[in-house]
Computed example of a mutant assay.
Amino acid sequence: MSSPPLAHACTLFGLDARDARLLHLRANAVYHLPRPNLVVRLRHAPGNAAVLERARAAIRITAWLSEHGFPTTKPAALNQPISVDGWISTAWHYVTSTNETRSRPHHLAQILRHLHRMNAPMIAPTIQLLGTLRADLAAHGHHGQADSVLTAVQRAWLLDRCSSVEAAYSELDPPLGYGLIHGDAHTGNLFADRTSWLLGDWDSIAYGPRLQDLVPTMMGHRRFGRPRTSWTSFCWAYGIDPDIENHPAAHILRAAREIRSLAAYMRSGDRPDIRAELQRRLGSLIDGTSARWRPL
């Protein structure tokens, strides 16, 4: 994969890239540009029309949400997104945090409850249940076994699991119904400005089951060792019974997010720590155990 073309993207945007600082590097390369005080996000997605369309939707819908009082990070008033050398780039206003309070599940719940009541006039793309997992598995299938991060048995299991989850999802009857969702709603995507929490990172924006936005917090105590009280406090703030986690639709959406999470680890499997976490997660899924996962 080529290096993020920040300078080229900024030239096309007409932005001053001097003194740019890398904030985050994983699925996206995220930079702060101090002179215009903007954040530029770059995602490597050569030829991926779906990612480009979702980026367009994120810009349109968050602009509308901001205009209508929803607490979101704001897209810059530029002609965007743009495609640069196989990378899709967007620009956003930088949130200068003066709030030292850590984001909590109840902060997220209140924002999601607000979002799920919004009726944006523009249509978001349909939810991509498994993200890029199938494409990553297909690319992985072309690698030689010597440098593979998955065994043939693991890859076959994942492909079969994808099919079974997709089949179950096709018959989904979720509580909370369908509507505009963030798609990757967790407290790490909350940013504190001077007066409130803002929801950012809209790469997975979609039309889909609203329950999907509750799943990351639901998984906190099930997979990451967080106290169940974080889930219950989230539910009370959202206004729903915590036992919703036992609904059949919750099981399906949770299963989808579990396997979807493996894609990023497969793409970065040359790093020993990421490769170890991939094996931990995949092993627990295949064996049906509740081994604790570690966020990296």
Rank of each mutant, 00 (worst) to 15 (best):
A63D: 12
S66H: 09
S66C: 04
E67M: 03
F70E: 14
A76T: 11
A77Y: 00
N79M: 03
I82Q: 08
S83G: 06
S83A: 10
V84A: 01
G86M: 01
W87T: 07
T90Q: 02
A91C: 11
W92D: 11
Y94N: 15
V95P: 04
S97P: 02
S97M: 01
N99S: 08
T101A: 14
T101M: 06
S103Q: 11
P105D: 04
A109C: 07
Q110D: 07
L112S: 10
L112N: 14
L112D: 14
R113W: 01
H114G: 09
H116I: 10
H116K: 09
R117G: 15
R117K: 10
R117D: 14
M118S: 15
N119D: 15
N119K: 14
P121E: 04
P121L: 02
P121G: 02
M122E: 15
M122S: 14
M122A: 12
I123V: 13
A124R: 03
A124I: 06
I127R: 05
Q128Y: 05
L129N: 10
L130V: 08
G131A: 03
T132E: 15
L133R: 03
D136Q: 14
L137T: 14
H142W: 02
G144Y: 00
Q145S: 13
A146F: 05
A146S: 10
S148I: 01
S148C: 06
V149P: 15
V149G: 11
T151S: 15
V153N: 13
Q154D: 12
